[in-house]
Design a protein around this nucleic acid. Structure first.
Length: 111
DNA sequence: CTCTTGACGCCGG
DNA sequence: TCCGGCGCCAAGA
C-alpha cells in the first residue's frame, strides 16, 4: 500500500523472496537476482527503492556487507536486535556507517 | 526503438 | 579507507 503504484512481475518476485529471508540472516542484492535466476543487482535495488517498504528491506545489503545507504542506522539497529552476525569493530568509537554484516556467517542459503 | 535513472558489483589507484 | 570508472538489468519517458 502506500507508495506502490503497481509492482511489476519482476518486482513481485523480488519482494516475495525478500519477505522469506529469516531473521538474523541476510542476502545481497546480487544474491537476490541470482536466486531469482534473472535480473541484476541494480534492478533489485530499483525494486527495493520503490516497493521495499513492505518487506524486511534491512536484510538486503550490499556485497561488501554494508547496509543500504538510505537508512544504515535503522538497519544496524534491527540487525543488533535480531542478532545478525556482525564483523568485529576495531576502533573504540563505533560509527554506524562503519559497521558491516559478516556475510560469511549471515548469508541466507535461500528457500 | 533510444535515453535516463537507480537502496548495485567489481577492479584499479 | 575513500574515490572514480565501467558494466550490469528492469522500468519509464
Amino acid at each position: 500500500m502506500s507508495a506502490d503504484g503497481l509492482p511489476s512481475p519482476f518486482a513481485e518476485d523480488v519482494l516475495d523472496l525478500v519477505a522469506q529471508i529469516p531473521a538474523g540472516t541476510v542476502l545481497t542484492y546480487g544474491d537476490v537476482a541470482a536466486l531469482l535466476g534473472r535480473g541484476g543487482p541494480r534492478a533489485v535495488g530499483n525494486v527495493m527503492a520503490r516497493f521495499g517498504s513492505g518487506v524486511p528491506w534491512w536484510r538486503v545489503l550490499r556485497a561488501d556487507g554494508r547496509m543500504p545507504l538510505c537508512d544504515e542506522v535503522g538497519a544496524l539497529r534491527r540487525h543488533l536486535a535480531e542478532g545478525t552476525p556482525l564483523r568485529p569493530v576495531a576502533g573504540a568509537v563505533v560509527v554506524a556507517a562503519h559497521r558491516r554484516v559478516d556475510l560469511d556467517r549471515a548469508r541466507w542459503s535461500g528457500p
